[in-house]
Computed example of a mutant assay.
Amino acid sequence: MDHHQLEKDIEHLEHVISHISAEDRIPLSYWRGRIDSVSGAVRMPAQASRVKRLNAALSELEQRQKV
């Protein structure tokens, strides 16, 4: 994945994750897969930090879904 595509993907995920809930039509497992795939392509510390925040936000949603 090239740098520009990776940035676009991270930006998209940041937007989506901030607006979804556990009850959305698209399951959280889909977004987990997207974050995991981006995580594997991260090359810069700033990107890693952003993906870490995405992981934390999605984990929180996943925990709420289990309750």
Rank of each mutant, 00 (worst) to 15 (best):
E60F: 12
E62P: 01
R25L: 05
L58A: 07
R25A: 11
A56N: 02
A57H: 12
S18C: 02
V51S: 09
E23S: 11
Y30W: 03
R43M: 09
P27D: 07
S37Y: 09
P27M: 05
I35A: 02
A46Y: 12
Q47A: 15
R32N: 10
S29N: 13
G40R: 07
A48Q: 14
G33P: 12
H19T: 10
V42C: 12
M1E: 00
S39V: 03
I17G: 09
S18N: 12
M44W: 08
Q47N: 13
N55L: 02
V42H: 04
A56G: 00
E11F: 03
S59C: 08
Q47R: 11
A46V: 12
R43Y: 08
R25S: 11
H4T: 02
L58T: 11
I35C: 01
L13H: 08
S37F: 08
S59P: 03
H15D: 12
S49K: 10
M1C: 01
L13V: 01
S37W: 04
S49H: 09
Y30Q: 04
V67H: 15
V38K: 04
M1T: 00
A57Y: 12
A56Q: 04
S21W: 08
I17A: 10
G33C: 12
V51F: 07
V42Q: 07
I35V: 04
A57V: 06
E11W: 01
R64L: 12
K66C: 04
R50L: 02
I26N: 07
K66T: 05
E7A: 10
E11V: 00
Q63G: 08
Q63P: 00
S49Y: 07
E60D: 11
H12V: 07
E60N: 13
R53D: 12
D36V: 06
R25I: 11
E11K: 05
D9P: 02
V51Y: 06
P45C: 15
V38L: 04
Q63A: 15
D36S: 14
H12L: 15
R34S: 11
S29K: 14
D24F: 06
Q65M: 13
S37T: 12
A46I: 07
M44Q: 14
V51P: 09
H15S: 13
N55D: 01
S18A: 14
R43L: 06
H15R: 14
G40C: 00
D9E: 13
E11T: 00
A41L: 10
D24P: 03
L6M: 02
S59Y: 05
R32W: 06
E14K: 09
I10K: 06
K66R: 13
D36G: 06
I10F: 11
S39A: 14
H3Q: 11
A22E: 15
I35W: 03
E62L: 07
W31T: 04
K52Q: 11
H4S: 03
R32P: 05
S29F: 08
